[in-house]
Nucleic acid binder design. Sequence first.
DNA 1: ACTACTATTGCAACATTGTCGCAATAATAT
DNA 2: ATATTATTGCGACAATGTTGCAATAGTAGT
Lengths: 125, 125
Amino acid sequence: MKRRNTPTKEKVLTILKSQDYAISHETIADNIIDINRATIYRILNRFCEDGLAHKIVAENGKQYFALCKTCEVKDHHHNHLHFQCNNCEKVECFKSEINISLPEGYSVGNFNGLLSGLCGNCAAD
Amino acid sequence: MKRRNTPTKEKVLTILKSQDYAISHETIADNIIDINRATIYRILNRFCEDGLAHKIVAENGKQYFALCKTCEVKDHHHNHLHFQCNNCEKVECFKSEINISLPEGYSVGNFNGLLSGLCGNCAAD
DNA sequence: ACTACTATTGCAACATTGTCGCAATAATAT
DNA sequence: ATATTATTGCGACAATGTTGCAATAGTAGT
C-alpha cells in the first residue's frame, strides 16, 4: 500500500516534529482544528507502521506518540524507557537503551517501558 | 482507613492466588458471578495500595493485576518486566529485576514494563 | 489535461474501560 | 445491642480507540 502526501498528514507530522515530548491525540486535536479524531489515530498508526514514530502506552491507558529520534535506525526497535511526570503529565523518551532478554522459546515483539514520578522541573517545586 | 474482611474481597483474592498470570477485571468477572464491575476495580486497587498486588498496563491500555510474588518485600517496588503474548494474551511476571536510573532531579514513582511477542507455548505452534 | 485507481478522510456509531456519587448494606469495635 | 464507617451495588458518565461506509482527493498513466 503506497502512502500519499496529504495536508492533514503533513500537519500532524509538523506538530510531532515541533514537540520535545511524546504526545497524545489530544495534543494534536488542540493544535489542529477541524481534524477528525479517527483520522488522527489512523495517521499516527500509519507513522508507527512506517517506522517514523512509536507508540507509548501510559499508565492511564492512553496512547502517546513520539517521532523516532532515539530509536536505532538499523534493526529498528524501541528499547528505550519513557518517563511520564505525574504532575505535568509530559511523556519523554530516555536515551539509554534497555537490555532485554527473553526466556527460551519466546519471540520478541515490542517493548513498552514507562517510568513515572516527578520530572526535573516539577520535583524542584 | 482500616480494611475489612468481606466475602467479595476474599473471593477476588482467591482467584488472584489461583492464577499464574496477571489478570484483568474480565477474568475475575468470568469467575465470580454477581459482582459489580466497580467493586472489582475498587478491591483490586485496594490490593495495590496495600502492597498485596501490582498493576500492569498492557499495550491495549487494559489493566492487569498480579499478586506480589516476585516483588521485593523490603523497600517494596515492582521493577520487573512483564510479558504479554500476542496470541494467547496472557500476561506474566518475569523474575529478573530491571536496573533503573533516573536523570538528576527526577524522583521515582512507578515502573511499568511490558514486553510483547509470542510466549513459549504459542511460538512453538 | 483528463482519467482511472485507490489511499485517505469525515462522519456516525459503537464497544470497552475505568471512575464516581449516592444510598443501602454489613463488618468491626465498644 | 449499638454506633461507626468501610464496603458494595447501581446507575451514570467521560474518554478512548476502532470500524464501516460513502465522499474526497492524491497519484500515475495516457
